[in-house]
Amino acid sequence: MKPTLVILAAGMGSRYGGLKQMDPMGPSGEVIIDYSIFDAIRAGFGKVVFVIRRDIEADFKEAFGDKLSKQIPVEYVYQEPDVSKYTSETVERSKPWGTAQAVLSAKDVVKEPFAVINADDYYGKEAYELLVKFLSDQPAGNHYSMVGYELPKTLSEFGTVSRGVCKVDENRSLTEIVERKKVGRDEAGTIRFHNPDGERGTLGEDTIVSMNMFGFTPTFFDYIDEYFGNFVRENIKDPSAEMTIPDILNELIAKNEVSVKVLTSRDSWFGVTYKEDKPDVIGRLNSLIEGGVYPDNLWGN
């Protein structure tokens, strides 16, 4: 059974200033998602599931429906703020509840091992190969995985970023993901962070971070359902509360309910956190094309 690729594409792109998932980056109008799906197909994924908002459904289907239907089966599911399943209280909220809810939105259409990625991130060819191998070797149970990246390969020159710093044991299993805010280099080149609570510190050049690329079995849906329900009830009055994938994994790991193998990619991650990142992304994609990693016209249309 081929694994499925779940693409989280419901984000607003607020710092970027628009719907960055649809912004052309490749020489034939390709967006970053195109390269992700291209890499996933050749690595051995068998289906793509987009998690989107209903208000961008028409744009997404116009952009990807006909193009991808010739390449791989595609389904769409919707991340919405409705949490009536978990509470009878009235919830005044206009935005969804974070990446954990986004993954849970795909429960009814994903019955096989699956990977999760962000729509606006480039992960590199090797990452999909690592996940396919892991998901093929571990087709069931509570053994999950994530692809980690060396922190210096994930920084932006145009502003600070948030990164999930990975703590890993001697078996390359994840023990915790620690969120660090305002991560960037200072004038001396040292990588520093500054969390909202005032905590400051430095991070080593060999630090491994999570870029929201995970491999799961369907058991993860049940864990999300349980933990997310509790989260909703505890945060019912907070319109900004979100539950992330790392939030749930940290709890499950602490209770020894799951294991998460950290697969380290040698590729560089890149994305468009800020508008100023776009020329760099275009340049990197052109270099990969010149190096034979991708064709000039990804889908040959």
Rank of each mutant, 00 (worst) to 15 (best):
I41M: 14
F270W: 10
I208L: 14
V281K: 06
K167S: 14
S240P: 00
E257W: 01
P96E: 01
G141Y: 05
F216S: 09
Y86V: 05
R180M: 13
P81E: 12
N256I: 00
K47V: 00
V103M: 11
F193R: 04
G141A: 13
G18F: 02
G164D: 14
R163L: 14
A58C: 08
F50A: 01
E226C: 04
T175E: 13
G215C: 04
D34H: 12
V6D: 02
L288E: 07
P81R: 08
V178M: 07
E129M: 10
S36M: 08
G65W: 08
G292W: 10
K181V: 00
V178A: 10
G201R: 06
M243S: 11
G11M: 12
E129H: 12
N195Q: 07
E276M: 10
Y16A: 04
S145W: 08
S268I: 06
F114T: 05
R54M: 04
G300V: 04
G148A: 01
P24S: 11
R172G: 01
F228G: 07
G283Q: 05
I289L: 00
S105Y: 13
M25H: 03
V168I: 15
D59Q: 11
A40I: 11
V262C: 08
S265T: 14
K237I: 05
S105F: 08
L263E: 06
